Amino acid sequence: MRPLDGIRIVDFSRVLAGPMATQILAEFGAEVTKIERPGTGDESRVFEPVFDGGQSAYYSAFNRSKRSVAVDMKTDEGRKLAFEIAAQADVLVENFLPGGMDKLGLGYEALSAVNPGLVYVSNTGFGQTGPYRDRKGYDTIFQALSGIIDLTGHADGPPAKVGVPFADMTSGLWIAISALTGLLGRVSSGKGCHVDLSMMDVQVSLLALPAARHFALGETPGRIGTEHPGRVPSAAYQCAGGAWLFISASDQHWPLLCDVLGLTEMASDARFSKNRDRVRLRDEVTAALSAACATRDRTELAEALRAAGVPAGEVNTVPEILNDPHTRVRGMVDAFDDPDHGTTPGLRTPARFSGYDAHRFEAPPKLGADTRTILSDELGLTPDQIAALYEKGIVA
């Protein structure tokens, strides 16, 4: 048994944010049915890179543990089938432009009329209202418009995007939050709801701390590299050999940090004992710590700092953290059996629930792999009716 056993989700979304959210819910037990176009399916099925055998690594990262139905929603019969599948769902996730699902006869008003308990999550770029509602959007566009890119990078360099699809993935988390909140609300209200979730709104909400500085100080926050605007030291320092180590120290850590680095005079200097003063003297503190770290081996220094109780973390590459012993012991890297590629690695959904079975970690579905079963077992179509749909290309 898993926490979301018995919950049915129909997923009309594509590429990343929506599929990421529904994968999380699927692995916690929900039955997720992915509605895709015959022939091509979700466009991320062909995104590079690909594993041997042709499976997209991108698609595999966000579509595990789901079912796939290939149905042509450009046809009346296809839209009818999609409607009937959605009419049985607890949650629907879609990322069409506003009004797109309505044009297909699959909007919230139409579906809630026959399925009043439906939690319908519309994940659009800019929301259902506002002057930008009809704009198309992409991860990096949201990063740019929201100010995230302007805040990322070093003060003397150009703006930079975040190293992962930040807007997509944070929006994916909010889709999952919204779906679960709607389901919980349904328990007390007895009815579902329509969730208007804008990816742009999600990005703006993540500006909580820079916005707080603007509200409090009237400043325009800028790029500060790895440093923290309100804490010194909290930054990455280069060690001997070129490797980087991140050190973050509050007042209670300051004398311990100085002791490990051999900065005895700075430790006893009252000018540096309080964070507010170190922020004011940021350049002087940074220069002293940079010079001290540059003479030390990163592994030795990191271990010495942690032994002293000073927060420190190596700046790892992706292969380094994937092969880190803690990552491995925690089971974050696992593998599923892909029919084309065989044993295929992937990253697990992180939450662990006591009292339940381990969450699912199954291969992503082949396009249309579950079409016939769902038409028969869930929609009650006869073999002849199903054969006719295949013959006409309505399903695949």
Rank of each mutant, 00 (worst) to 15 (best):
A86F: 05
K103M: 12
R135H: 07
T152K: 03
E77V: 10
D139S: 09
A110H: 00
S189N: 08
T181Q: 15
A89L: 07
E77W: 10
E77C: 06
P159Q: 14
G157K: 12
G137E: 02
N123P: 06
G185K: 03
A110T: 15
L151H: 01
T129V: 11
F142S: 04
G190H: 14
L104H: 08
R186M: 04
D90V: 01
G127N: 11
A113H: 06
K191W: 02
A113D: 08
G192L: 00
L97S: 13
Y108S: 01
R133C: 05
G125I: 07
D102F: 06
R135L: 12
Q128C: 04
T170V: 06
G182L: 01
V93S: 01
D90H: 10
I141P: 01
L81G: 08
K103P: 03
T181R: 06
D139E: 07
I177V: 15
G78M: 11
G117P: 03
P159Y: 13
G192H: 02
S178Q: 09
A144Q: 09
R186T: 01
H154C: 04
I149R: 09
L184Y: 15
G105L: 07
E77T: 14
F126Q: 04
W174Y: 07
D102N: 13
A179D: 02
E94T: 09
F166R: 01
L173N: 11
V121I: 13
D139V: 06
A82H: 07
P116N: 12
V114C: 13
S171W: 00
E84Y: 00
G137T: 03
L173V: 12
G172H: 08
D150Y: 07
S178Y: 04
A144C: 11
G185E: 12
D102H: 09
L97T: 08
T129H: 10
S178E: 09
G99L: 12
F96H: 15
G125H: 03
T129K: 14
Y132G: 02
P165Y: 10
G172W: 03
I175F: 02
